[in-house]
């Protein structure tokens, strides 16, 4: 799988080719070690503060435009599509709260997560992958520095910090889209809109979304770093790392969404 010394307990190449099941467990074990290493080393000094800030900026900046447009359009379209159903009951005045709940609870975290998986995950995977392939990671290692700390810890932390911020930003932009639609159609004022939507949101919603976004961010950073850091040699390794970063992160995000919806439902009274 990789040729680093301090990390893989077994040199997979020298072991007799293991079967499919054994390989799966070996790679699960590898992933487990990778994640453990992050928690063991990521929070110990010396810190790579500058690189962390760099990465936060990178991640936020890279996805900002896409997230802004997606958020705005989603807010508008979702409001527009929900109107007829509510109108049947003469309840179009519920639109602000409906949209607020939908956006905050699910749409914003999920949209942000998926977009970041595409933009951020793939670029982390490709960047670390090409560093592995061109032996830049090995070069860091032989110069007695810790590439894991510099490359992986910073990126995972940056994604974990930035994705929640982006999520609330998406929700905000989405609400703006919804407001534009509502104010044109129902003539609702900004004040009324804000009040309606705030009233429907609970503290639990905010906590749940934050937790979800943190998990999504961690997932995106971890998957991208793992794929890139352990990418195979050769240029096709870079492409594979970028590609699988996106696919695996998206899959995990859906899975985590399903699980967390179940989990937070336990705390909801209504």
């Amino acid at each position: 799988m990789n040729n680093k010394s301090e990390q893989s307990p077994v040199d997979h190449k020298t072991v007799k080719a293991p079967g499919k099941l054994a390989r799966m467990f070996l790679s699960l074990y590898d992933v487990g070690q990778f994640v453990t290493r992050f928690f063991k080393e990521g929070f110990l000094p010396p810190y790579e503060g500058r690189e962390l800030i760099n990465q936060c900026y990178n991640i936020g900046y890279r996805s900002l435009l896409l997230i802004s447009t997606t958020g705005l359009i989603t807010g508008m379209v979702f409001t527009k599509q929900s109107r007829p159903s509510l109108a049947e009951f003469g309840a179009t005045s519920w639109l602000p709260s409906l949209v607020a709940i939908a956006l905050l609870r699910t749409l914003a975290p999920l949209l942000t997560g998926l977009i970041a998986a595409g933009k951020v995950g793939s670029s982390i995977g490709a960047e670390l992958g090409s560093m592995r392939v061109t032996e830049q990671i090995d070069a860091m290692e032989v110069s007695a520095t810790n590439p894991f700390k510099f490359l992986v810890s910073t990126r995972v932390l940056a994604a974990t910090i930035t994705i929640p911020i982006l999520t609330f930003y998406t929700a905000l932009v989405g609400m703006l889209g919804a407001f534009l639609n509502v104010t044109v159609n129902e003539g609702t004022t900004m004040e009324a809109f804000v009040q309606d939507s705030l009233e429907s949101i609970t503290f639990l919603d905010i906590i749940a979304s934050t937790v979800k976004a943190v998990i999504f961010g961690f997932t995106i950073g971890m998957v991208g770093c793992y794929q890139g850091y352990n990418s195979s040699k050769g240029t096709e390794g870079v492409g594979k790392a970028a590609n699988s970063s996106v696919v695996i992160a998206m899959f995990l995000i859906f899975l985590e969404e399903v699980i967390s919806v179940q989990f937070f439902a336990l705390f909801r009274t209504t």
Partner: peptide, 14 residues
């Protein structure tokens, strides 16, 4: 590793 310098075949510059 501090005492052993390694210059890579492809330079491996960052």
């Amino acid at each position: 590793r501090l005492k052993v310098g390694f210059s890579f075949q492809n330079s491996a510059l960052y």
